[in-house]
Nucleic acid binder design. Structure first.
Lengths: 348, 348
DNA sequence: TTTAGTGGCTAAAGCGCATTAGGGTCACCG
DNA sequence: CGGTGACCCTAATGCGCTTTAGCCACTAAA
C-alpha cells in the first residue's frame, strides 16, 4: 500500500538498535555471539534483525578489519582459448559450493596472461577486495607464489606440486606422475611401444610433470620412440600434431592427449588419415567429459572429479582464512576409464 | 634490507597526505579530479600515490556512498548441467573485458535454481556487495525483474525480449524469432517438410520464443509435421530425443538443436540408427563452437559472437550505473554457417 | 560497612574514504 | 584603503560496523 516506489533502504544496526531499544554495541555483541548481553536481549535483537531483513554491510565489515568476505579467482587465458572446457566451470562450481556455505563471495576475473594476473592480485590486495585467492595453472618458474607471499595474501595453488619454498601457500594437487606411469604401464602391457603424448602448454607445472614422467617411464622400459609434443590445448593443435606424427615414419600406435578437446579432434584427424581407432592407433584423453562420449568410438579417458577438486581447494582456503596452517593436499589419482578407443597394439 | 617478512601494509590516503605534505581532503580532491587543489599539488599527490602503490579501498569507498565497484553474475544451473558449454565462459570473458576497463569487479555465483538466485540478489543487495547485476536465462513468468526492480538494483537481462513492464531494466537480446524464421526458410527451400526442433529447457524465454516462431512459420507454410520437443540441454537428452523421433513413423528430414552439445550427440545418435547426415537427415546446431567442427560431417550452425554479446551487456550495465536510461539493445541476428550437415531433403 | 567483583549495558573511537563547511591569502575593483 | 571574490587548502563529519573503555546496579567476600 505504501507506494514502495523508492528503492528500499538497507536496514542498519542503528535501526535494529532503535527497534530493540538497546545500543548499537549491544546489537553488535548480540549478533556476533560475543559476551556482554543477556540471552534475553540477544534473542530479541536477533529477532528484530530477522524481521528487518538485516545483513551486515560487507563494506563496513571490511573497513573495521574483518576482511572482505570474498575470495578471488583469476583465469589467465586468452578469450578464444576458453572455449569448450568443462574443467573450469566444474571446478568453480565445486568451489562455490563450499564458499556459499560460509557466505563468502567469489570475485572472478579473466585476463590475458600471468603478468596481468599478478597485476590483478596487487590491485585486489590494495583495494582490500579479497581475503585470499585460488591460483590455477601453476607454472614452472611461477612469479605468483612469491608475489602472494609478499602481499601476505592467503592462497591455495590448484594443480601444483607441493612447494617447499612457499610455506605460506596451500596446495591441492593430483598425482599426474602416478597417473602417467599407470597409463604408460597399461599401454605397454597392450603391446604399445611407440607412444606420443600430445601435451598441453609448455611451462605449465603439470605439463612438465607429465612430460618428465613419460620420459622417465620410457627410459625405464627402454622405449626410445616415446615422446611428448606440447601444444596450446586447442582442437586445431590437437588435430595438427596428430596428423604430423601419424604421417611420419613408424607412426605411433598410441596417443595420449592432455585434454578432451584435443583427444576428440585428434581421433577425428586420425580417422581421416585412414587410421582406425583403436585398431591402428589407441587414443587416451587426459580429461573426461561428455565430449569423450560424443564420438565413435567413445574415448578412454582419465576421469577425475573436478567438482570435488574445487571443493577441496575451497576448503583449504577457508581453513587458511581461519588461521589454519598451510597444507599440501593430494586428491585421488585420476583413474583410467577404459572405453572403446584403446586396444592392443597392431603387430608392427 | 628491512626484513619485509611482515605482510606489507596497505598505503592509505593518510600516508599520501603525509608524504605530500597536504591534508587528506586535498589528496581526495586531487585523486578524484575534483576542483579545490592546484595543478601543481594535484600532480605531486598523484605521483606520491603512484610511488606508494596506492589504490582506493573499495570497502571505504562503498561505505561513503560510492557503490561497491562490483557487479554480480549468477548462474542458476545444477552443477552437472554446466559441463561442456562454451557459451557462458565466452559471455563472461566479454563481460570482463568491459568491466576491467573500469576496474569493476565481477562477483560470480553458481546456484541450483531461480529461487536461490533471488536469495543471492537479496543478500548481495543487503550486504551492499554489488552495484548491479547481469541476469541470464530469463524465463516466462520470471520473478527476478520484479525483485530487482523492488530492490532498486540496476540490472541487464541477457537474452530476454524487451520487457515493457520493467522500465528500469535494460535488455540485451538476439532476435531468435527472426533467426528461427530464416532457418526454417532455408530448410523449406531445400525441400524439408518434416522438421523437429530439439529445444532447450521449457520455461526459458528464448526457448519459448523459438518454439512459438517455429509453430507460426509451420502454420504459415502449412507444414503439419513440424514440431518442437523440449529438453534439458544435455547430450543425453539430445541423443534420446533424436532416437525417439527418428524411430517414429515418417521420421523428420531435418533436426534443429538448441545447442551444440545436443546437436553433436544427436548427429551421432542418428548415424548409429543408420541415418546418414545430411543425406537422410539434416542437422542444424543453434550454437557454434569448436564442437561443431569435431565431428564428421561438420555441423551447420547458427553463429553468434558470444564474447561481443557479453561486451554489449556489460556496456549497458555500466551505462545504467552511470545513471543512463534503461534500454533494449538487439544484437545482430545470428547467421547460419552452412557446413556439411545440411542438404536437400531426400525424396519422401 | 566497605571493597571488590561481575553481569549487562552504553558511549566513543576508529577503519579509509568523500564531502561539506570554513579559513586563510591574494588580486582586483570601487 | 576597505571590501569582495576567487583560489587553495584544512578541519570535521558521516558511512556501518567492531571494539575498547567505562558506567551502573547488584552481590559476595572481608
Amino acid at each position: 500500500m505504501s507506494g514502495k516506489r523508492s528503492p528500499a533502504r538497507r536496514p542498519t544496526m542503528k535501526d535494529i538498535a532503535r527497534h530493540a531499544g538497546v545500543s548499537q554495541s549491544a546489537v553488535s555483541f548480540a549478533l556476533n555471539g560475543r559476551p556482554g548481553v543477556s540471552e534475553d536481549t540477544r534473542d530479541r535483537v536477533r529477532q528484530v534483525a530477522e524481521e528487518l531483513g538485516w545483513r551486515p554491510s560487507t563494506a563496513a565489515r571490511a573497513l573495521s578489519g574483518e576482511g572482505a568476505a570474498t575470495v578471488g579467482f583469476v583465469l589467465a587465458r586468452p578469450a578464444d582459448t576458453l572455449g569448450v572446457d568443462s574443467f573450469f566451470l566444474q571446478l568453480v562450481s565445486g568451489i562455490q559450493e563450499v564458499l556459499a556455505e560460509r557466505h563468502l563471495g567469489l570475485l572472478f576475473q579473466v585476463v590475458e596472461d600471468v603478468a596481468d594476473e599478478c597485476a590483478v592480485y596487487r590491485r585486489w590486495w590494495a583495494e582490500h577486495r579479497v581475503d585470499g585467492v585460488l591460483v590455477v595453472d601453476p607454472r614452472t618458474d611461477d612469479p605468483r607464489p612469491d608475489l602472494l607471499d609478499g602481499l601476505g595474501l592467503p592462497a591455495v595453488v590448484i594443480g601444483g606440486a607441493p612447494d617447499v619454498r612457499h610455506p605460506g601457500l596451500s596446495t591441492v594437487w593430483a598425482d599426474d606422475a602416478g597417473a602417467m606411469a599407470s597409463v604408460v604401464d597399461g599401454l605397454h602391457a597392450l603391446g604399445h611401444r611407440r607412444i606420443v603424448h600430445i601435451a598441453g602448454l609448455p611451462g605449465l607445472a603439470h605439463t612438465e610433470r607429465r612430460v618428465r614422467t613419460l620420459r622417465a617411464e620410457a627410459e625405464r622400459r627402454g622405449l626410445p620412440e616415446v615422446r611428448s609434443v606440447t601444444t596450446d590445448y586447442s582442437d586445431a593443435a590437437g588435430a595438427a600434431v596428430t596428423r604430423r606424427v601419424l604421417r611420419g615414419d613408424a607412426p605411433p600406435t598410441a596417443l595420449i592427449y592432455d585434454n578432451d578437446v584435443m583427444a576428440v579432434a585428434g581421433a577425428a584427424a586420425a580417422a581421416e588419415l585412414g587410421f582406425a581407432v583403436p585398431a591402428d592407433v589407441s587414443v587416451v584423453s587426459w580429461e573426461d567429459s561428455a565430449l569423450c562420449r560424443m564420438v565413435k568410438p567413445w574415448l578412454s579417458a582419465l576421469s577425475r572429479d573436478s567438482v570435488e577438486f574445487g571443493r577441496t581447494a575451497a576448503r583449504e582456503l577457508t581453513a587458511l582464512l581461519d588461521g589454519g596452517p598451510a597444507r599440501a593436499v593430494r586428491v585421488p589419482v585420476p583413474r583410467l576409464t577404459e572405453r572403446g578407443s584403446t586396444g592392443a597394439a597392431r603387430d608392427v
